[in-house]
């Protein structure tokens, strides 16, 4: 290793006579406050065509399944009027099937918005955008929190709006079969809010997975594994442990939270809420800690 001492007579050594005032070495304007970072993340969110398409798909799927479910529920209730066997099955459901109609597309909404959560974070790394993002916000966590907020709020609002729209669309269909659905009833409102919060939670878990795995396919597969494969696998594996553990899967927390009456051998509503909360907090915090530590 050789190094030569600077010769001040050479060109480039005029650093001392820089015009004062123009450049002082300290910043001359505002830095990345949380609100500014939030604004930036919202711009990033809405300027991707793929995001807009996924959001549109969510509305279509939730409304579509709502309408389909209204029609199916109507057919079922009609059959119950003539077929004693169907009538028995209908009665076993508690008689109020219609209240679940608007949220019948939630399973698909969670898949789309959960995947969106994964993609928004993993694409930062796969495209190299993360280097720009975290050069602008070197503390990193504010950018992560801002993105999380944008994703969760969007998922909540969009799901709530879609579910309400699905309810509106299914009203005339249910009316055909003389089924009543009151969208303002406390149970309807509860269904709407709990399911919307649930989808926001899934989107947050997706984002944490995207941040941890940094790979789109891997993140989405993990999400699908957790929400679609694990419940089935846990059912197939014999043994009390898996029967018990199945209750604690995030996808099985919605029913206890929206049940009119507590169903035996399921979690209490507050327990289910805590379980879902833990499923969100643990990966989200872990992802934030690792994001701060790992190289970009």
């Amino acid at each position: 290793m050789s190094s030569t001492t600077l010769d001040p007579s050479r060109r480039g050594a005029h650093a001392g006579d820089v015009p004062a005032g123009t450049m002082s070495g300290t910043s001359t304007g505002p830095g990345p406050s949380f609100l500014r970072v939030l604004n930036s993340e919202f711009i990033k969110f809405r300027t991707l065509l793929s995001t807009v398409i996924l959001l549109g798909c969510t509305v279509l799927v939730v409304v579509g399944f709502g309408a389909l479910s209204a029609w199916g529920t109507g057919q079922f209730s009609e059959a119950a009027a003539t077929d004693p066997q169907a009538a028995a099955a209908f009665a076993a459901q508690g008689g109020d099937l219609a209240v679940g109609v608007p949220t019948s597309g939630i399973a698909f909404a969670q898949l789309i918005l959960g995947s969106l959560g994964v993609l928004l974070m993993s694409s930062e790394f796969t495209t190299g955008m993360a280097r720009s993002t975290f050069a602008a916000v070197p503390k990193r966590v504010p950018a992560y929190a801002a993105k999380l907020l944008v994703v969760m709020v969007t998922a909540f609002v969009l799901t709530a709006a879609s579910v309400y729209l699905a309810g509106l669309v299914s009203l005339p269909i249910l009316d055909n079969y003389n089924l009543k659905l009151d969208l303002a009833s406390s149970q309807s409102v509860k269904m709407l809010l709990v399911n919307s919060l649930y989808v926001a939670a899934v989107a947050a878990i997706g984002m944490a997975l995207g941040s941890l795995i940094r790979n789109s396919a891997g993140g989405i597969m993990s999400l699908v594994g957790l929400f679609f494969v694990a419940p089935i696998a846990f059912q197939l594996i014999p043994g009390d442990f898996f029967v018990e553990a199945r209750k604690y899967l995030p996808g099985n927390t919605v029913e206890p939270m929206t049940a009119v009456q507590h169903v035996p051998d399921t979690l209490e509503a507050w327990q289910a809420a805590l379980v879902l909360g833990a499923w969100v907090v643990v990966p989200v915090v872990l992802a934030a800690v690792l994001l701060k530590r790992r190289d970009v």
């Binding site: 304007g29 505002p30 830095g31 990345p32 500014r36 970072v37 604004n39 930036s40 993340e41 711009i43 990033k44 300027t47 991707l48 065509l49 793929s50 694409s123 930062e124 495209t127 190299g128 955008m129 993360a130 280097r131 720009s132 050069a135 602008a136 916000v137």
Partner: peptide
């Protein structure tokens, strides 16, 4: 640092706009 440190599906203007927003 890297000419490809940009989300490929975003326009150049929106990329710069999002970057600028962090510092007003």
């Amino acid at each position: 640092l890297d000419a490809k440190a940009v989300h490929t599906s975003r326009s150049a203007y929106n990329h710069l706009l999002a970057m600028a927003a962090t510092h007003s």
